[in-house]
Design a binder for these strands. Sequence first.
RNA 1: GCCGGGGUGGCGAAAUGGCAGACGCAGCGGACUUAAAAUCCGCUUCCCCCAAAAGGAGUGUGGGUUCAAGUCCCUCCCCCGGCACCA
Length: 826
Amino acid sequence: MTTGRTTELRYNPRELDKKWQDRWAADGLYRVRDDDPRPKWYELTMYPYPSGDLHIGHWYAMSPSDAHARVRRMQGYNVLHPMGFDAFGLPAENAAIKRGIHPFTWTMDNIANMKRQLRSMGAVYDWDREVNTCLPDYYRWNQWLFLQLYKAGLAYRALAPVNWCPSDQTVLAREQVQDGKCERCDTPVVQRDLEQWFFRITRYADELLDFSGLLDWPERIKLLQANWIGRSEGVEISFDIAALGLEEQEVRTFTTRIDTIYGVTFLVLAPEHPLVSRITTPAQRRAVASYVDATLRETEIERQSTEKEKTGVFTGAYAVNRLNGERVPIFIADYVLRSYGTGAVMGVPAHDERDFIFAKKYGLPINVVVAPPNWDGGELKEAYLGEGVQVNSGPFNGMSSAQGMGAIAGHIERQGWGKRTVSYRIRDWLISRQRYWGTPIPIIYCDHCGVVPVPEADLPVLLPEDAQFKPTGESPLRYHQGFFNTTCPQCHRSARRETDTMDTFVDSSWYFLRYPNATYEVGPFDPAAMRFWNPVDQYTGGAEHAVMHLLYARFFTKALRDIGLLDFGEPFLRLFNQGIILGEDHDKMSKSRGNVVAPDEYVEALGADVVRIYLMFLGPWDQGGPWSTAGINGMARWVNRVWDLALREYGVGATHASPLPDAAATRNLVRLTHKTIRRVEGDLDRFRFNTALAALMELSNALGDDWEARNVDAAAWDAAVDALLVLLAPCAPHITEELWERRGRPYSIHQQPLPAWDDALAADEEITLVVQVNGRVRDRLTVPADITEADARAAALASPRVQALLGGKPPRHVVYVPGRLVNVVG
RNA sequence: GCCGGGGUGGCGAAAUGGCAGACGCAGCGGACUUAAAAUCCGCUUCCCCCAAAAGGAGUGUGGGUUCAAGUCCCUCCCCCGGCACCA
């Protein structure tokens, strides 16, 4: 045990946890029914990858969400709070390569272990509704949904430059590339051209920017998604290259600064731009070819580095700016990206930082067309990006650049040289993975019929069990003759199967639709059950999924709605992101730092409840924070105090009755009880577990004092203790159930409603009136809560401390804040 | 560089513009004990002071608004996260 000194509990936590977990399971206490008349509440937490071990981060994500789901139960909702496994993915395959264990075996063993660990948490999960994405009865519906998207034109195959991880031997989605490296193994990613499957998420870019269908999402996540989608309005403007005598008469560029069109002194194409080879003059051929080669060899890190000096090569060709008839040279440069806009940009060095640097380096003219304020007509030291007055802009001179923007765009559209358009940063979602352990893409390639979808009746396309895992990491599917060779469903001649599998984010894009009907066999979901529970009322999980899982799931929901499978467009109405639990040294937990906390040890020693409430108490849930071994021992001590309090026999006939209950003390306890109920329910509702638990501690401290003083009425004592247990029950389900039983209350505490509070009983009779002189606290007076303003002012002025400070002079001004303070301004 | 979030005692933290530091941890003192652990009680932001009272200072920095600012506005610094040649 690495937990150091550990508080001894009043009870055996292992036995107590097991007793109640077994009893709840036997009674089906958490079995969820679809025919329950109470309002439904679907509370979901992001399902885990079955790595094999439930670590403290899982506990930090899952036990508070379980507590919140329990709060909703106690508030009278019919609550679905399911759990499952994101079971496809690369680690299983790596285990197969390294240790010769089949991914299926590895994954299912891990799931078995994690389910045991998850059960130890004592959550309300209804395991009858478990979802496991690596089983054919789940992934067949991945395939079915793929076919529906394909039919709708939302899934397509294209040759595209992709991010390839040489170590994992697969392509990556752009979201999975971090700083030019593979998110998983840190290998520098290289560019390759491959035939890949895509989902047309870009068709939904504008709708994904519309968050109006959401009830409560963190602003931060919406902003992250908006930035990722990266919508920018601009103008597509073509330049005339008819003089080159090619089939193409023009080069199209995209700009957000059409007001600077008269300042164009060059054009730049991406090195991969299809026109490059055709426009290049014989004299420049060699230079251009070697530059293009060098660019393709670059890794993403090199290409994307902003520190790198701007480089480029002249193609020898010129284009004409149609607005002023000027002839400008065409360059290629690797800072222009093929995949954004049109893959070509107009160079306006006076008004764009990159173009400015490029022009300086290659000696290109810098023509000011938007005059900065107080511009003297001289040379610019740096690009001027702001607004100004149009100059050197032909008929648009004298307009503000804002006016110029509209006027020039209108002129271009009338002339047919271009049009106003919108560009997005987001690209279509690349879902092909050259891996075994994923959902096979249900497509067949036939020499006669071309790309043929697998007929729905033939689903699922099963992963072959007898796959050979190569040390190179290449997908076994390509070498599995029985899988690879098939017959065309249309012409019945021999054909080949697609060997790529789907990104696992496809699985998680609709798993929430499956929980309500996890065993449904005629479709991905039973429309009635799915619709009864969906959309998810409250989703919780880490913010790292802001632009991947959450965006993909929103896209899927909208796409399935348009196909006619759903009648709603947002999957998750409310979202809460928990923070990250750090090591005791305040660093991110990692094996290499040796600061990883294993929850099982603490659950074993202190029970699930202590681990749960400690994690909830350590700070605001959305901020995360450092683990503290001393801190969790403090929680164990408090649990002991609650245990003692709850079992004390206080009252009529008991050994520790008050001979003569004190009316004032009793009123104080009743008041505190009602205040605590009000506070705790408000806090729990808004995921503020730390302050909810602090309020319960205050109540338990007060009960301790009352026990010592023996001065409160027995009924008030019992009501306070019962309220304490019921309010604590969502956070600490096991010990509250035990204490509830020992106190002779009816099973189960988890079927009790949250107690109601009475504002009248919670109201203070006396308040502390703070008396300030010139804004500084100089006295505190205890006065009746309903004191009149006149009395409060008089009492404050009568204070000897105030009198002394005023020195006999009348105050200039007195501020009164009802129920709080009087500020005497002298 | 741009966009978020954050900076409060020895530590984790609390605080509708109205008593800064609730609650917990650690520490110190006391009770109980042959002793220790556990438990219980008390103290615990800093400065001045033998001590207390009474003062004074104090929520990253500097300024502002206000009778009153941790909270609102402006400047700058630092930490964390995201994006980053997106034309």
